[in-house]
Computed example of a mutant assay.
Amino acid sequence: MIAAVQVALPLALVCWVAFLPSGSLVGFAVQVLGSGAILLALALVAQWAVPFWWLPYLHGALWLGAVIRQGAGLRQGALPLMPEDAGGWVALGAALVLAAVGGWYGARALAGRVLPPVAVVDIANPFGQGRYLVGHGGSNPLVNGHMRTLDPTIARFRPWRGQSHAVDFFGLGPWGLRARGWRPADPAAYAIFGAALHAPCDGTVIAAEGGMPDFEVPQQDPVNRLGNHVILRCADAEIVLAHMRQGSLRVAPGDAVRVGAALGQVGNSGASTEPHLHIHAQRPAAEGAPPISGEPLALRIDGRYLVRNDRIHGRD
């Protein structure tokens, strides 16, 4: 599915413009609009962690080259303003559909870059050295799957509601790949596995778990969802870092930490289908309630509200 949607479809759209341009001026204009809208929507909505993160930029450059090449050719020929046969009108209709679909999804993805109407917690970058890509992040479910847990009608989401504005990070290795291979079973083959984590705020450790196993991909533990984790109380908010590496934790409940203090490493424990860091902010959960059922809060990391496919560098 990823190969079809994120590789084959963009290349098909580029070839459509490059080798099958519309035979009318309006048809070509709508063809350019429709193909461009789909490419933009794919760049914003799809997770670009499995193929190269820079692939949408390549698709965009190829599309722009095709448009310029065909546009230059239009000046040399006298094309009719509107299609003159049934095939031309069908192509125009298809391009209009693509423009509408791509425009809707692109607009929704761009809307997800706006901070949600909740309190915002500012924290420091929790990563050590390395490069990292946002998998889930943003203010609507199209770009942040965590936001589905805001639905109060689904009972099974209530114990996890605090993570509704979470951000998930993948690592980026050589050539911008997140792993050595398409989806290797060994968690150590993923760029983020073993990445150092540091306290993103001054606070107190109120919960820490480090003994759960790191699973092979794509196994997971849907019961102990956080896996190995640290929960920090920073002022009136809690910061939760989950799916950490077994045996890597450097803190214990009750410890006071300062920004930059070593917490542990990224792993693949809990409800994690492949190594990544899950981080979220919430109000403290009610007495006796599940630990991540508190009121969800938005996060800014080093002053940035991070959304899907944003990239950050770890600290030296």
Rank of each mutant, 00 (worst) to 15 (best):
G102L: 01
S272K: 05
D316N: 10
A86Q: 10
I38D: 01
P275S: 12
V266G: 06
A252K: 15
F52E: 15
G254A: 05
G23W: 04
L306Y: 02
G106C: 03
W53P: 02
A188L: 06
A49P: 02
D202Y: 10
V67K: 04
G176I: 00
R131V: 06
A191Y: 02
W48P: 03
G267W: 02
V90G: 07
Q70Y: 07
V17S: 04
S248V: 04
A271Y: 15
A91N: 10
D186S: 11
G145W: 12
L299K: 10
L232D: 00
A72L: 15
F19Y: 12
H313F: 11
D122A: 15
R180D: 14
L249K: 00
P187E: 08
R250G: 03
V30K: 06
G87P: 04
A261S: 15
P187Y: 08
E274L: 10
V257L: 06
G314S: 07
C201I: 14
V5D: 02
D316V: 08
R131A: 15
E209Y: 05
R258V: 07
V17C: 05
L306W: 02
R283T: 10
H146Y: 12
E209S: 15
I2F: 11
L232V: 04
G247T: 03
A91D: 10
E209C: 11
N224M: 09
A252D: 09
A4E: 05
L226K: 09
V223A: 14
P117W: 01
S164H: 03
P200M: 13
D236T: 12
G112W: 00
E274Y: 08
I206W: 00
A86G: 08
E238G: 02
A179R: 09
A46G: 03
Q47C: 09
R113N: 07
G88F: 07
R245T: 06
Y132W: 08
G23H: 12
A37N: 01
W160I: 07
A286V: 08
R178K: 12
P291V: 14
G23I: 04
G73Q: 13
A8W: 01
E84W: 09
F215D: 05
F157G: 01
A207C: 07
R131M: 08
A237M: 06
S248H: 04
L232C: 00
P174D: 11
A12Y: 03
R304L: 13
G270M: 07
L142V: 13
L44T: 04
L55V: 09
P222C: 12
P152M: 11
L299D: 05
G102H: 00
A199G: 02
Q6W: 00
Q6A: 07
R148M: 11
V120P: 05
D302Y: 07
M147Y: 01
P141H: 03
E295C: 07
P159F: 02
V17G: 05
I279E: 02
A72Q: 12
Y190T: 09
Q31R: 11
N140Y: 03
V114S: 15
L33N: 10
V121M: 09
Q31W: 05
A196G: 06
R69Q: 10
A195H: 01
G181W: 06
W182H: 14
V26K: 11
G145C: 05
A4D: 05
L133G: 00
I312E: 05
H278A: 13
G130L: 09
A285H: 10
R108I: 12
G36N: 01
